[in-house]
Nucleic acid binder design. Sequence first.
DNA 1: TGCATATATGAACAGGCGTTCATATATTAA
DNA 2: TTAATATATGAACGCCTGTTCATATATGCA
Lengths: 125, 125
Amino acid sequence: MSQKTAKAINDACEIQFVDEKRVKSVRRVMKSAEAITALAETFKILGDPTRVKIAFALSKEELCVCDIANLLKVSQSAVSHSLRTLRQMKLVKFRKEGKIAYYTLDDEHINNLLDVGFRHVEELL
Amino acid sequence: MSQKTAKAINDACEIQFVDEKRVKSVRRVMKSAEAITALAETFKILGDPTRVKIAFALSKEELCVCDIANLLKVSQSAVSHSLRTLRQMKLVKFRKEGKIAYYTLDDEHINNLLDVGFRHVEELL
DNA sequence: TGCATATATGAACAGGCGTTCATATATTAA
DNA sequence: TTAATATATGAACGCCTGTTCATATATGCA
C-alpha cells in the first residue's frame, strides 16, 4: 500500500499512521473522522426498511404522520419514532400546521442518496 | 395525498392501496418491493463504522485483508467477517493471488454512494 | 370546558448484529 | 511432510435497536 493511500485513509478514519507532528492538519483529520462516523450513522439510519420507505415516500411528496402510517401500514407510534430518528440525522424536516405535522426530505442530497442506492440495487435484481 | 403519489409509493413498497386487478404490473411491483428491501439492506451494511471505513479505504486503492486489518486496527477475523458481509451485498469484490486476497469496490456506484453521503454529512459538521 | 384528533415519547421486551476466540482451509517455502 | 502465513468461518456473548403499549401534550371543535 502506498504512503499516499495510507495517509488519505488515515486522515478520514483517524486510525494508525497518524503523524503526531502534523499539528496543522489535526483539525482536518478530526473533521474527517467525524465525517466517517456521521456517514456510517447516516447509512445506518437509512438501513431500516421502515425508515427507507418513509424516506422514499417523502421523496415523492410532503406527507403528514398519519398519511405515512396508513400508507406503510405501520403504527403511528412506530412512524413517529422513525421520523424522530430521521430528523436527528437531518434526513427529514417538518412544518407544523395546526395539529398536523408535514414532513419532507431535508434536502436534495437525500433524494440523491436514494437514487444512487436504487441504481446499485437495480443491478442485483 | 394524491392518488398518483399513493400509487407510486405503493408500487415501490408493496403496501396498501395495491389494486389487485392490475395483474400486468404485479411483476414490476414485486421488483420494486424487492428493490426497497435491497436498498435498506445496502444502507444497513454501509451503516457500520468498520464496514464503511473498509469501503472508504477500498475507494482509494485495492487492498488485501491484512492491510485493511492493520490500517483500521481491527482484528483479521473482524475484517474478514465484514468483507464477507460487504461481498454478499455486492459492495466489494476480490481476486486471489496465491494466498493473498485483494479487495476492491464492486463498481462505481459504491464510490458514488460514499461521495453523495459525504456531501450530506459535510453540511452537518 | 370537555372531547376527539394528531403527534410525541418513555419503558420494556425480543430479535438482530458485530465482535472475539478458536479453529479450519489453503498456499508457499523449506 | 512440516511449518508459517493469509484468509475464512462457526459459535457464543453482550450490546444495540425497532417495535409495542401506555401515556403525555397540543390543537381544534362543540
